[in-house]
Design a protein around this nucleic acid. Structure first.
Lengths: 144, 144
DNA sequence: GTTCTTCTCGGCGATTTTCGCCAAAAGTAT
DNA sequence: ATACTTTTGGCGAAAATCGCCGAGAAGAAC
């Protein structure tokens, strides 16, 4: 289970060191892809395989699933974690997520998300304001 | 069953000693996360597992459940209780709950809550004023 | 084909941060 | 008063982060 929030810096070669708490769980081979809400999703290779197979089940029949497949698959790269725990972000993904010097890694279930620090802060404050309302819903489901 | 209210101090390294009454029940491995009403929730790892599995059932299809998942999961950390019974609070959680020098631990069912002392006092006095009204409600449900 | 330039990528190592442990202080019970 | 538990401060070892250097590949110019 991936958890927590960690801030790191992108070096001038587009490398970012993966938070050490995540390293054991994600392993050496990962896939980075377009995420939802202007961030990147980073999956351990094993998790990615599950997602890819689910995507393939969607088929290419409908225009919108075709689009989503392209979004996720064409937008993905396989990457290695180097000896000191860093990953290299390709330019097109860096641009997509608007990554600047400071980025935030967040652990969510089986994936890591990578956010522009500013975007993350804005997103978070928006979410926190809605938290009470959400909690009511979740009470109904039995989370609390 | 966790019960009671204890005041402790945060040291300059963001450590707080867990009230000794809670230690046996929460164990050595815990998860701390965003709570509701500006406090933190602290769960024994076992309790957390239940919550996390319920959250994962929500999926990430809808924007608002995606948000709540991030609130709870990215807003959480797994932590160890150290040899002397202390826990380390990450900066982002300390900030979220507005923790200053004095904090209050409260036991509520299966979780411990961590409050800024001032916020707790205000919250408590607000609640106490409503106590009569609450009692009526509870009478209706058959608690008393 | 050879040489020179550019870019990528791995790794070293200094600085900073984290974390476990010891021990003083404060509080409780006998 | 004494022994025991709990709380909290602080030191020091270990680990993580991140800037920097340089080896090697790829490519361009001659």
């Amino acid at each position: 289970m991936l958890l927590g929030e960690y801030t790191h810096t992108v070096d001038e070669k587009n490398r970012i060191s993966l938070p050490s708490k995540f390293r054991k769980e994600v392993g050496k081979k990962i896939v980075i892809t377009h995420g939802l809400d202007t961030c990147l999703f980073l999956y351990p290779l094993k998790e990615w395989a599950k997602i890819a197979s689910k995507l393939s089940e969607l088929g290419m029949g409908q225009a919108d699933t075709r689009g989503f497949n392209r979004f996720m698959l064409a937008g993905a790269v396989e990457a290695d974690v180097d000896g000191t725990g860093r990953i290299l972000i390709p330019d097109f993904l860096k641009e997509f997520a608007d990554l600047k010097n400071k980025v935030v890694f967040t652990g969510v279930h089986n994936r890591v998300e990578i956010w522009n620090e500013k975007n993350w802060k804005e997103y978070k404050s928006r979410i926190e304001k809605q938290a009470d309302r959400m909690a009511e819903k979740l009470g109904e489901i039995g989370v609390f």
